[in-house]
Amino acid sequence: MKKDKFKGYAKWGYIFCIPFFLAYAIFQLYPTVYTIIIGFTDLKGVTTTTFHFLKNPFENYSFILGNSMFRKAFGNTIKLWVCNFIPQISLALLLTAWFTDRRFKIRGQGFFKVIFYLPNIITAATVAILFSALFGFPMGPVNDILQNLGLIKEPYNFLIKKHASQYIVMFIQTWQWYGYTTVILISGVLGISTEIFEAAEVDGASGWQTFWLITIPNLKTILLFTLVTSLIGGLNMFDIPQLFVFGGGPDNATMTTNIFIYNQAFKGSYQYNKASAASMIMFVIIVVVSAILFYLLRDKDEAALERIKKEASKAKKQRDKEAAKASASAGE
């Protein structure tokens, strides 16, 4: 009975998803498939459109994997992402805990929420201009302040120092995105039933306990979203490092894999094939890492449901079998 009802509605699932796939097929499919294919060819050069498949189809891939600059870029990307994600998510969780704890009654939190998101509104280009002005050398506001405070004697050239420029990029990323993450997390908390919180309150749970035992577990799907999108965004980091300290920074210290790909494809030689191979390698890495995250943070309820369904069908089969056996034995 119930199964029939499900079947009747199944077509709506297809109908609701069709617009997405149609739009994708029209606008994105060709570029994507084209990109994947040229990774196995010798295509390079801005106007070249004829290409040949390579004898060793993975030649570009082995070049990229063996290339020390790609490895360095990959290391940078991981470093820049991890070191901006940790402070960013910590700050966002802290703010979420403060703002959604009804007993704190933080005044003006609407105002704060709105303000914290503001750095995300301005374009990366503007941010880059502002920060390179702030860290100007030998004269610039940051150098002036540090010198006036007596922290440094000589002006410090931040933008030619590897570590300094990495830290600045991490700072900018955190600064730009903690507000976004906070807003997402808060909207997630708002989706949690208030009754649960009220019940916790009645039970006398402290704010800290409520947060860890109620908010976080109920926020898991949204946390997974934040983690996965930030991972994707982080491993595809491009704008700020590209614009802030041109094309890779001092001695390639802020060169991310996406800048590497961009340089391959658009700087002088137009090595589309190698850029494509590098893109695909990054794609595989992101898929694998995301899959692990999904597995670790999978929706336990859903998984449990699946298990129950499976067990039920198993049990049913078992029963059928037994019934068959029984009838068989009865027949005997």
Partner: peptide, 15 residues
Amino acid sequence: MAVMMIPAQLTTIGF
């Protein structure tokens, strides 16, 4: 999900 993970740098050129 897979679509979301494709680095956009290159595919835009095809577009």
